[in-house]
Design a binder for these strands. Structure first.
Lengths: 296, 296
DNA sequence: AGTTTGTCACCTAGGTGGCAAAGT
DNA sequence: ACTTTGCCACCTAGGTGACAAACT
């Protein structure tokens, strides 16, 4: 299926750690990680300088759904489980799209870029978190080990990142489709799964456990011209929502992340306490995840 | 989504009762309905004269999956439940496709045409089935009320067909896709649902209960030419498998149909008797229904 | 009397985190 | 000591025919 786009994908560099390309920022206090850019500042991501763009994509605007929930997770340091068989993300990455050419064909896809070149570990005891890290190449000073309880204590830099995994992308299953179709309702990436299996042959996204990642969202205009490869650079637009960054883990490290997942993910309802009034998330966070269908 | 094809759909006439356009046939004894053409004779349907065709579709060949199971149902007189919310078909219509241009785009769709202009009812007592039908406009003589037990007794003609329902079509959700993708594995129409709700707004197939229908399968080459509407007639090819014809019902009329559904549909396992050895269907009939996915 | 509707118990299919055990 | 794996109970989500009640 993805053959129609393969040429255009070369333009998405996925190997180097992601850095914000636009706007300045100041250190924030609510992140458990050093040197984090601020989040939640923009409703619609500013993709920064990407060169001249086809108006078919330059006018496209994207809105992150469940933004409040993402921010709630991000303040604790979002973790996403990776398994051999592949695990969905929660929250699910969902967007509302505006500004497409209703009659043009677009493909939507996601990929994940490393947020830094570090490997983390969940070690030590509270108090010695900042000082006793192993043979790490830690450069920046960890500014905060805030008031949340880790499974053991805190995130420590454990060294340089493991070799980069194959930089896979995930096409939304409905790709390609007309702009009108994409804009009709919320687009949900609920089929996307994360795995730590380097040999995965199910097409899942391969990530290294204990590493941090930034999801990216790409809108690609399917150029009908025969020499469309020549225009690949102008025919896509990328969006980054910093509040969706996360640490890949094989088991949750921060117990408050676990509790928030249980409180907000319908599939984890079995682990909720009987009284369902003590949620920290608003009820709308529990609304069912919209899906898109072609058959209508 | 279907906009790219709407012009081409006009060529599919769905209003008049379907009749076999090719080959001769003789009366058969295993059908509970009068004047039924033979079934199961051809592995691949012969669509008959459809005018000159684009080689992109003329070389396409289609093989019905679960053929043995379809025939088993057809010998009893297949019934399909229709509900207000929409009900899936069982068996599911599934095909294996050969002969497509691997690089060309195709859309696959189904529609349903009336098999005759009659309305049926499930009336009378055994023995008086053939003679005492109500004020029907019955023209042909019912030849067989074979050795199976109806809920009451037999299918009687109850009069002329109700006004034809809106002739909806169901696009396979993966449409459009490359020939290579369609041929990679079995294509399953398991998202298709039948309804008796004339006001249905879920895009389901609308049928009249107590009427007989012939499912049809259409392969449409998505012509990249700007004036593709001009070539609509040559760009599609239709296939009919007579063993898939059925009567739409709101509740099963033939108890042997019910039992065969229970025996062969995994979702009806709850109604099976404890010993699972007394099936009349081969174990392969119970294999899971393959689905196709774009995300790989 | 025949047909349709809505509810139900019982399934399939698959997404949760917990947890013990294994791995490193 | 920390991380990963496999299995589990418990969910969501939705596909079955049975059945009683309603409809016509």
């Amino acid at each position: 299926m993805a053959a129609f786009l393969s040429a255009g994908l070369g333009v998405l560099a996925t190997s180097e750690p992601y850095t914000l390309t636009s706007s300045s920022w100041e250190p924030r206090l609510d992140s458990p990680f050093p040197s984090d850019p601020p989040t939640g500042a923009q409703v619609v991501a500013e993709p920064g300088k990407q060169g001249p763009k086809n108006p078919r994509v330059s006018s496209v605007t994207v809105q992150l759904e469940m933004k409040a929930l993402w921010e709630e997770f991000n303040q604790l340091g979002t973790e996403m489980i990776v398994t051999k068989a592949g695990r969905r993300m929660f929250p699910t990455f969902q967007v509302k799209i505006l500004g497409m050419d209703t009659l043009a064909d677009y493909a939507l896809l996601m990929d994940f870029v490393p947020l830094d070149d570090k490997r983390y570990r969940s070690g030590g005891r509270p108090g010695e978190a900042a000082g006793t890290a192993g043979g790490g190449a830690r450069k920046s000073t960890p500014t905060c080990t805030l008031g949340y309880a880790f499974h053991s204590s805190a995130w420590l830099v454990a060294g340089r990142a493991d070799p980069a995994t194959p930089g896979r992308v995930h096409f939304h299953p409905d790709s390609p489709a007309k702009g009108a179709q994409w804009m009709r309702q919320i687009v949900s990436f609920d089929k996307l799964k994360l795995t730590n299996n380097l040999l995965d042959d199910n097409g899942h996204i391969i990530l290294n456990s204990m590493h941090r990642y930034q999801p990216r969202f790409h809108v690609v205009f399917v150029d009908p011209r025969k020499d469309s490869e020549r225009y690949a650079q102008e025919n896509f637009k990328s969006f980054v929502f910093t509040e969706t960054q996360f640490t890949a883990v094989t088991a949750y490290q921060n117990h408050r992340i676990t509790q928030l997942k249980i409180a907000s993910n319908p599939f984890a309802k079995g682990f909720r306490e009987s009284d369902s009034d003590s949620w920290t998330v608003p009820p709308r966070a529990l609304l069912s995840i919209p899906t898109r269908s072609h058959s209508g």
